[in-house]
């Protein structure tokens, strides 16, 4: 063992090394500017101390980049490798990871993109990132047990009117200003210049949820989205069905409801004094 005249306290060592290893200039450059930190590292030729530190520094950035990429394949596909790396590096500098789980790494990424200069060139990019984040959230959220549709037949008309729907916790509604669903679906396809950008804004109503296997995204009409939002807010069925837009036909509403049940969005029907679920 080599001896050091003034060994650093563990707290000082860790604070200093953290700054060197996560420095956006790279650990090697940061180490050159911190000779005291380098002096704490054993000198063991032929590999110099700065190179040894850079193993950790390089791994820090690459590990985070890999995690952010896997959560935002569509954003990366639009930007391409170089711009995505630049965006990611700036994001990590602004929002260094603070969670034990890498799944939380991108929690500020959509908002960061919205304020980033690249949004001037790709105005839909933050919408796309919000959709990818919603998909990850659906993937990592627990589902409720499935509703048995047959149990719905046991409700009297009166109980049905007084009931509220309970939706699966994975369900989310989004209304991006750009039709980003197409880019999200193409996220794992080879880079194709014709299918990595959007030309015109259009508000798109999307529902995002998870079934037993994977995350699902579906575009819905404005009327269905409005009804679903009110149902999510806990409005009773009688009121939901009574206060429909004049252009919405009862048959449509029945079809939407049937689809919500079939897709596993509805998990419970709760009437005063009773709860029906699987």
């Amino acid at each position: 063992m080599q001896s050091s005249p003034r060994p650093p306290k563990l707290k000082l060592l860790q604070d200093s090394l953290y700054r060197v290893l996560t420095d956006s200039r790279g650990a090697r450059a940061a180490a050159r500017a911190q000779p005291a930190v380098v002096s704490w590292i054993s000198d063991a030729p032929p590999i110099d101390r700065e190179t040894r530190l850079s193993v950790y520094g390089d791994a820090y950035f690459l590990r985070l980049l890999e995690a952010l990429t896997s959560d935002h394949l569509a954003v990366r596909r639009t930007l391409g490798e170089r711009d995505f790396r630049t965006l990611a590096a700036e994001y990590f500098a602004r929002h260094p990871p603070a969670s034990p789980s890498l799944a939380n790494l991108g929690e500020h990424f959509p908002a960061f993109i919205a304020a980033h200069r690249l949004s001037g060139r790709w105005p839909f990019l933050s919408d796309l990132a919000y959709l990818e984040r919603a998909a990850l959230t659906a993937l990592l959220t627990d589902r409720l047990a499935a509703l048995d549709p047959a149990t719905l037949t046991g409700l009297t008309p009166d109980a049905w009117g007084r009931s509220r729907l309970v939706f699966d916790p994975t369900l989310q509604l989004q209304a991006p200003g750009w039709p980003v669903e197409r880019l999200w679906r193409a996220r794992e396809e080879p880079l194709d210049a014709r299918n990595r950008s959007l030309r015109r804004p259009r508000v798109q109503r999307l529902i995002i949820w998870r079934d037993e296997v994977w995350v699902r995204v579906r575009e819905v009409s404005s009327a269905e989205a409005t009804l679903l939002k009110r149902a999510l807010d806990g409005v009773r069925m009688a009121e939901l069905l009574a206060r429909q837009d004049a252009s919405t036909r009862p048959k449509e509403v029945r079809q939407w409801f049937a689809l919500w049940v079939k897709d596993g969005l509805v998990k419970q029907v709760v009437a005063p004094g009773t709860s029906i679920q699987a």
Binding site: P7, L13, D15, Y60
Partner: peptide
């Protein structure tokens, strides 16, 4: 150690092998 100051490096960083550690 994997992080300090509330930050996480998501790496497995070695400690000094001494009595204090």
């Amino acid at each position: 150690w994997t992080g300090v100051g509330g930050r996480n490096t998501h790496d497995l960083l070695p400690l000094p092998y001494d009595e204090a550690s």
